[in-house]
């Protein structure tokens, strides 16, 4: 489904991604973790070309990401993304946030898009907020709206970039519950997160990054109980008190 072959990225002279090789199969759930500045956000943002890689190949669902705009658009149509800061469109109601993609990108009739949007709002448990504006919702509700917005595009792949990092502790669970449900349905997911309990329960594979490199890649059972690298162990010791 997703192939990263020798992917390199620089910000100016800073080498942010160093020769990343990663292959993700259909329906696989990957959790990426690592210290801040390790390149994990950069990595998943390369997968829908919010960041441009300078060397190597990224192939998503058979389409190579290069300078061809039509390739980029084709990939973005199939890849949903949730951000740390939610990034809901603050001038649109919740419902309008959800139908924007289906109506303008998928060219779906408005009525059909509304029905679709309502079904997803119900799934994430906030159908009653459809006419409010994002600023009137709590962080947890906003993030659930953001997830629903991505799902309205019926993506084949979902990317989560630290979806719970800017939430109040009381709201983390409501978002993780929604994500767990998605994971169980077999959606291909790549998730950057520090929620290790969540990772343990849903991940097929853990990817640990540091300094722009993938340090270790293993199933959660091994990753948490028996890490191969000392760097992984010291990271785990830091975050699992």
């Amino acid at each position: 489904m997703i192939e990263l072959i020798d992917v390199n990225k620089w910000y100016g002279h800073f080498h942010a991604l160093k020769s990343i090789n990663l292959s993700i199969g259909k329906g696989e759930r990957i959790v990426v973790c690592g210290p801040s500045g390790s390149g994990k956000s950069t990595l998943i943002r390369c997968i829908n070309r919010l960041e441009v890689h300078q060397r190597g190949k990224i192939i998503v669902d058979g389409v190579e990401l290069n300078d061809q705009m039509q390739n980029i658009m084709a990939v973005r149509r199939e890849v949903g993304m949730c951000f740390q800061q939610f990034n809901l469109f603050s001038h649109l109601t919740i419902l309008d946030n959800l139908i924007l993609g289906p109506v303008w990108v998928r060219e779906m009739p408005r009525r059909q898009a509304v029905n679709l949007a309502m079904s997803f709002l119900e799934r994430v448990g906030i159908a009653d907020q459809q006419n409010k504006y994002p600023g009137q919702l709590s962080g947890g509700q906003q993030q659930r709206v953001a997830i629903a917005r991505s799902l309205c595009m019926s993506p084949k792949i979902m990317l989560f970039d630290e979806p719970t990092s800017s939430l109040d502790p009381e709201m983390v669970k409501e978002v993780l519950d929604v994500m767990e449900e998605l994971a169980r349905e077999g959606l291909t997911m790549i998730c950057v997160t520090h929620e290790m309990g969540f990772a343990r329960s849903i991940a097929d594979r853990m990817v640990f990054m540091d300094g722009g490199e993938i340090v270790e890649e293993s199933p959660p059972s091994e990753f948490f109980s028996n890490p191969k690298m000392d760097r992984t162990l010291s990271f785990l010791n830091q975050i699992l008190h």
Partner: peptide
């Protein structure tokens, strides 16, 4: 905020759609 561009791009909106709608 740059996030608004990114969210619109991630949805698959084109430059003119992103500009005009978001």
């Amino acid at each position: 905020n740059r996030g608004q561009h990114e969210a619109a791009n991630a949805l698959g909106l084109s430059y003119w759609q992103t500009t005009g709608l978001v």
